[in-house]
Design a protein around this nucleic acid. Sequence first.
DNA 1: TATGAATGAGACTTCATTCAT
DNA 2: TATGAATGAAGTCTCATTCAT
Lengths: 196, 196, 196, 196
Amino acid sequence: MKKKEKTYQQILEATFILFAEFGIQGTSLAMIAEKVGISKPSIYYHFPSKDALIETVFKVIFADYRFDNYFQIDKMTAKNFEKKLYSGGISMIPETNEENFIVMKVLNEFILTAGREHNYAGEIVELQKDFLLGFERCMDKGVELGVVDAKDSKAKSQLLALTIDNISNYMLMGIQVEYRKIWKLAITNIMERVDK
Amino acid sequence: MKKKEKTYQQILEATFILFAEFGIQGTSLAMIAEKVGISKPSIYYHFPSKDALIETVFKVIFADYRFDNYFQIDKMTAKNFEKKLYSGGISMIPETNEENFIVMKVLNEFILTAGREHNYAGEIVELQKDFLLGFERCMDKGVELGVVDAKDSKAKSQLLALTIDNISNYMLMGIQVEYRKIWKLAITNIMERVDK
Amino acid sequence: MKKKEKTYQQILEATFILFAEFGIQGTSLAMIAEKVGISKPSIYYHFPSKDALIETVFKVIFADYRFDNYFQIDKMTAKNFEKKLYSGGISMIPETNEENFIVMKVLNEFILTAGREHNYAGEIVELQKDFLLGFERCMDKGVELGVVDAKDSKAKSQLLALTIDNISNYMLMGIQVEYRKIWKLAITNIMERVDK
Amino acid sequence: MKKKEKTYQQILEATFILFAEFGIQGTSLAMIAEKVGISKPSIYYHFPSKDALIETVFKVIFADYRFDNYFQIDKMTAKNFEKKLYSGGISMIPETNEENFIVMKVLNEFILTAGREHNYAGEIVELQKDFLLGFERCMDKGVELGVVDAKDSKAKSQLLALTIDNISNYMLMGIQVEYRKIWKLAITNIMERVDK
DNA sequence: TATGAATGAGACTTCATTCAT
DNA sequence: TATGAATGAAGTCTCATTCAT
């Protein structure tokens, strides 16, 4: 029983890594089997089909890639708001975290696929909304704490979501941007100018 | 002569549309041939290989998707700077531009592929840099015109590039964001607060 | 395990026969599969590619077609030298042996191919040299036994090699030559005229 | 009219050279067209099919590769018999005759093909017989001139034919043999030992 | 006299999947 | 719990050939 669970995990992990490197369509069961060190049909013992495997991979990512994993709103105070927001964003950026890099790559695969096949479309959108809503809650908290102007707070949250999201994309493409400065700038811009 | 050119264009267009719908790997020569209404080997009369066809599609997009097609820096003045910047960005957004929708989808395909196969990687990066540099030139112009504070002007331009880029991505995914507000907000934020 | 080995052998044998009949290039995997009674992709379970299959066929022939399989030098004596040489040569000639006929045909295929693709060139030459050297050793033995004049013994051995080789070629082409007489004549000519 | 004839010859020549290099099956009409510098369908203006082209190539070779082109029996005398025989053979050997090298390669192609398709089989055999008969006439002449023992004269002629034929084969394969010595030896062997 | 454009047949190969063991 | 053996469908690509121009 333990062995089964182990192989299952190995298959998932191998698939995960291969998806990041070769894409979903570019990854064959043969490749996965070889990486795990099992035979091709063995995969069918654990997953009824390639599609099911894909979906499982998706769900695993889906489960982990959540706003609350990066930002803890309930720990935000007027004093640390800007700082928490800043460090949360930075922790999302692939470069800073190897694991993230692969996750993001596979995620991008799914996002692209989502536009074509409707299997994941819903969940992808849900995932993006999780972040959008997370930033909204965050802005609300900021307003509540008196560090963010209530005006256009929804657009502000979306701007933050977009920014952090695309910084990741650029990192993934290997384009170097001054992401700390950019993120800082984005945050500063949406915050109330107390000095005024 | 005309006939060849016509079929050539038909193949390109069909490929283009199919790439947008099914992805590069998900599009077979059989599908293209069927869509055009020719036989599979006929494609080889016009393109030496599938790779060559892919590359041509890529170059066509690459040729058109340029910063200067959307923003005309030389026509910017202190007075219309904000407005021009705003309208230029809006014109890039898929929803407002049917044609753009497909272009962006295929472009995304290439971007994803670029991370894996190094065929287009260089050109993709070049393309992204074209936009990054475009916004930089834009900020410089803004500084020159006295409507943008010189401080962190590079990070500002990157922020704008990221924002407009990712608004497109969200639209592609079918996630509705208040993109006009977001874009407005982004622009306002980077502009000098003359009222201060 | 046994099943695999069996199919493997069946593929090899079918390939062998088809090569003899239609040539290497003239034999498709479809033809092989049909002859064996399996599906085309099944061949790939046993051989990674057509080239690999070709090479295996080549090696099988290569392993069997050896001078020592036809001539046993160590059993030659002054008395039986001429006779052993004669019977060894005769046993090589295709007509006398159905199996040989196919082997020779396929071998000729490889020889022809060898001139073009350098895959087998080296081994083909090695094979020919095996026979050339075999006859040289044979002549040396003859000299040692005192039944062959040492003069030009190398040219003599080459003459024998050429003769037996081309008798085969003629048989393959269906040209009837008095091969027994020819071979006899060739042997007689190179032997020391003791009676003179 | 002249132009037509010229192109016709160019096609033949190109085909000839390509056959020698890539084999008959390995040579496509596209390759021929490219080498000549014309379009693929243009070949069909001069030859009704690839098979027809192949046959023409065959006939051209067939017309030139004749015993009488290398050996002039009517000029043989008792004195020069051995010498003429020797030089005639040497002139047939590819190494000594650049042109011959290609001819022999293509000829070998046809010989191999002949075993499979019955198109050329008859003519190939006829060609080989031309040489066999040539050597027979040659031996008869030798007998008539009193320099060759009448006994087994047919087998002797066949031995000579085989020998010179296979020296060519070895040269083609790039196996160096002492062909002058071999040929000399073969001739000496079949000649009457006048010194006895 | 030649070619531009196209095609049906078929080549090798890979894939996800099945099923008896 | 896993695999050995096999397969139908589909992929890219090449070939000899056709036909209107």
